[in-house]
C-alpha cells in the first residue's frame, strides 16, 4: 500500500470511529488529525515506511476517538427488549372469539378475525386456517345441526359429520395455540 493510501485508509477509519461523537467534537477531531498528518508530511514524512511510522505514533483511530469521548455517554446501551410472552390478551381473545364470538352480537367473530389477522404470532397460512375453519365458529355448526339436512345426506352420516364439525373449530384453536409465536407473521 502506498503512503497516500495508508493515509486515506487511516482517515476513513477515523471518520467511521468518530461517527458516534457529537457533531462539534467530531469535526474538530477530524480537522485536527488531518492537519497533523499534513504537517507531518510537510515536515518530511514521505516514504511509505515513514508514513506508517507516523500513523503508528498518532495511534489507533478508536483510541483517539475514545479520548474525545471522555466524559460522554456516546451510545445509549440498547434497551434489552423484555422477552415477549407467547400470547398476549389479544391472542387469548382470538382463541375464544373464533369459535364463540359470533354469539356476541355476531361482531365478536369479526373482532376475533381482526385480532387474528393483525397479530404477528401466526403465519398467513395459519390465519387462513383460523378464518376458514370454521366461518362463524360454532354458530354455523349449530345451524347445520338444527336445520333439517335430511335431503342432503343420509341419516347415518349425520352423526359423524356433526362430530367432525364439532371438533374442527377446537382443532383449529389447538393448532393456533401450538404454532403461535412472536414474529411468526414475517416467516
Amino acid at each position: 500500500m502506498s503512503g497516500e493510501r495508508l493515509v486515506t485508509a487511516y482517515l476513513s477509519d477515523l471518520v467511521l470511529a468518530a461517527e458516534p461523537l457529537p457533531e462539534e467534537r467530531r469535526t474538530d477531531l477530524i480537522v485536527d488529525v488531518t492537519s497533523h498528518i499534513e504537517e507531518a508530511r510537510a515536515a518530511g514524512a514521505s516514504s511509505e515506511d515513514e508514513i506508517r511510522q507516523m500513523l503508528k505514533q498518532l495511534g489507533e483511530p478508536r483510541d483517539i476517538v475514545a479520548a474525545a469521548a471522555d466524559g460522554l455517554v456516546l451510545v445509549e446501551p440498547a434497551p434489552v427488549a423484555p422477552p415477549q410472552p407467547r400470547f398476549r390478551g389479544r391472542e387469548i381473545a382470538v382463541f375464544f372469539l373464533l369459535p364463540f364470538g359470533v354469539y356476541i352480537f355476531l361482531v365478536g367473530w369479526f373482532a376475533g378475525l381482526y385480532l387474528l389477522w393483525t397479530s404477528d404470532r401466526w403465519t398467513g397460512r395459519e390465519k387462513w386456517l383460523g378464518t376458514l375453519i370454521t366461518p362463524f365458529g360454532y354458530a354455523s355448526i349449530q345451524a347445520i345441526a338444527t336445520v333439517d339436512t335430511g335431503y342432503v345426506m343420509a341419516g347415518w352420516l349425520r352423526v359423524p359429520v356433526l362430530l367432525v364439525l364439532l371438533l374442527a373449530p377446537l382443532a383449529t384453536v389447538i393448532t393456533l395455540a401450538v404454532k403461535g409465536r412472536p414474529g411468526r407473521s414475517t416467516q
Binding site: 488529525v33 489507533e60 483511530p61 479520548a67 474525545a68
Partner: peptide, 25 residues
C-alpha cells in the same frame, strides 16, 4: 503539531500522539 512534538521530548509522556487533540479540545 508543534505541541505534540514538544511533548514527545518528555520521556514517555506521550504514547498516542493523536489523543493530545481531544485533550486540547
Amino acid at each position: 503539531f508543534d505541541l505534540v512534538k514538544e511533548l514527545g521530548e518528555i520521556d514517555g509522556m506521550v504514547t498516542t500522539e493523536g489523543t493530545i487533540y481531544p485533550l486540547l479540545a
